Amino acid sequence: MSAPSRSKIRPPREGEAPAAAALVIGAYLRAVRLARGLTGSEAAGTIGCSAARLSRVETGRLHWTADATDLLERYGIDDLPSLTAVEYLLQGPHRHILSDHAPGWLDRLHACLRQAETVVIYSAFSIPHMVRIPTYPTDSLTQRLRGGPVRVRHAQVTVDNGEGVTLVVDELALERLLSQPSVWSAQLSHLRQLASSPQGPRMLVLPLDVGMIPPASLMYGMTLHGHVMVAEEGIGFVSYYTGDEAAQRCHFLSAALDAGLPFEQAVVGRTA
């Protein structure tokens, strides 16, 4: 395999939001390290750097692409497609926009979600994967594109770990679920259980009569290492936004939060 690139990544200027790629790759590196059971000091020693420098890398202050690829190789991810994907993402032309459809894209998204201090999830057309029951219907194309090797733990919202998570489901998603009577009752019961748990997520339903035009993708607004980032998940890819690019999408999420109804209030009387 060829030597890793030594390309330099420009650090953010004073007051500037971090590059989306640096935040995403940093979170991914930390998730892989934890999955391998390594402490920060142990991982730093494998590439001859300090634990403080590793911490900066993992929190979005990554200055060299080779730091990322060196760490991945030490963690056992040494196949050319994975290493090339990380180099490609870090060398993208837009600092505050990152489109990730490279191998491992879903792992990188879940690494960000698991490490985020707060997360707002908005879905207009289906129940998000993080709160679905196992029998929820999924089309074969989505299953294939979300497949592949899983190298980090994927985020799953439960009755015990939902603090800091807000789920906003468009009423349209519930209407679509009504057309699946075989899973409606069990999925609704699961969502109610999440909504009623003191440690569960905050659950809201956005009424159709609000008139907001929903995005075509699943949207995540998160605070990651103190920085605001928005992710939009499509079929087989995810796009990330920081800085001013994230601000306009945060405006939509804020409006959805303001207009949303408490879950139990919104689903009263609904039956399959």
Rank of each mutant, 00 (worst) to 15 (best):
R13Q: 00
R13F: 05
E14R: 15
E14W: 13
G15S: 04
G15E: 09
E16A: 05
A17V: 05
A17G: 07
P18S: 09
A19S: 06
A21M: 04
A22G: 02
L23R: 00
L23E: 03
L23N: 01
V24H: 04
I25A: 04
I25G: 00
I25P: 02
G26Q: 01
G26F: 04
Y28S: 00
Y28G: 02
L29P: 05
R30Q: 10
A31V: 07
L34E: 15
A35T: 09
A35Y: 04
A35Q: 13
A35V: 02
G37I: 12
L38P: 04
G40L: 14
S41W: 06
A43I: 04
A44V: 00
A44K: 03
G48K: 08
G48M: 08
C49A: 08
S50W: 12
S50L: 12
A51E: 03
A52G: 13
R53W: 07
R53N: 13
R53K: 15
R53C: 06
L54R: 07
R56P: 03
V57F: 14
E58M: 07
T59A: 11
G60Q: 05
G60H: 00
H63E: 15
H63N: 10
T65D: 10
T65I: 15
A66N: 15
A66I: 12
D67S: 12
A68M: 09
A68E: 07
A68L: 09
T69C: 11
T69S: 12
D70F: 09
D70R: 14
L71S: 10
L71C: 09
E73T: 14
R74Y: 08
